[in-house]
Design a protein around this nucleic acid. Sequence first.
DNA 1: AACTGTTCCAACCGCTCACGG
DNA 2: ACCGTGAGCGGTTGGAACAGT
Length: 261
Amino acid sequence: MGRSPCCEKAHTNKGAWTKEEDQRLIAYIRAHGEGCWRSLPKAAGLLRCGKSCRLRWMNYLRPDLKRGNFTDDEDELIIRLHGLLGNKWSLIAGQLPGRTDNEIKNYWNTHIKRKLLARGIDPQTHRALLSGNAASSGDGAPSNKATRPAPPHPTAVPAKAAAAIFAVTKPPPVADSSDDGGRSSSGTTSTGEPRCPDLNLDLSVGPTPSSPPAETPTSQRPVCLCYHLGFRGGEACSCQADSSGPYEFRYFRPLERGQYT
DNA sequence: AACTGTTCCAACCGCTCACGG
DNA sequence: ACCGTGAGCGGTTGGAACAGT
């Protein structure tokens, strides 16, 4: 049995891509678009595995990629999303336009893990580490955020549930976005620029935006995802919550390709 | 300057998922 | 319902770049 190999290994290049290979791949995708990665290498005249072409394009050559350092906002969002989703890098990347799953995964393993450990937080469970090697290390970690309690259910939600959470839904009415006082997760700064220009999420939990819950018992109310992620009290979302949880919830939607630059 | 250890990231590998026949 | 195929995902690795001695 066994799977057939994804490509003819004997005649494929491996390792770092050359500029010429990059140019060929870019030119081909510009001309024909993405799709059918298996046949792309041959069609594009590349001695590469289709998977390798896809990876190179997705992680490095795509024109909408944002290169450069992660911002503090992105850091915090990644941490919270990881607390909710676990190692679902592609889902996390879906909420960070211009960032790739591979990039986020690398960044997590090289930076954020260490950052959390310095805060005294276990990067896998998002719970406080046992005293002894805890946050007191004082290497400059922000204090407020370090003391935020871990989410109630820190382990990853099942993949399908996670995918459902991030299901693309109909965007909310435009008028709705104008009266949130710039306090949503994609709010604006005093200069009118988006405070978090890349965080235009449309995460739906429960009913779709077109059918908001009417009279729902508290225990059955849909949970605002930004609330779940810790953006509360106007920190980054305008959900109205009282001691029993959020009454209103916002729906976030990943930007369509081309909506961001 | 030379060597060694560490960090970081691009790329690979193998597995699972989704879909069409 | 089942099976085969292709796409996508997450874990891991190799090696270049950098820092320290």
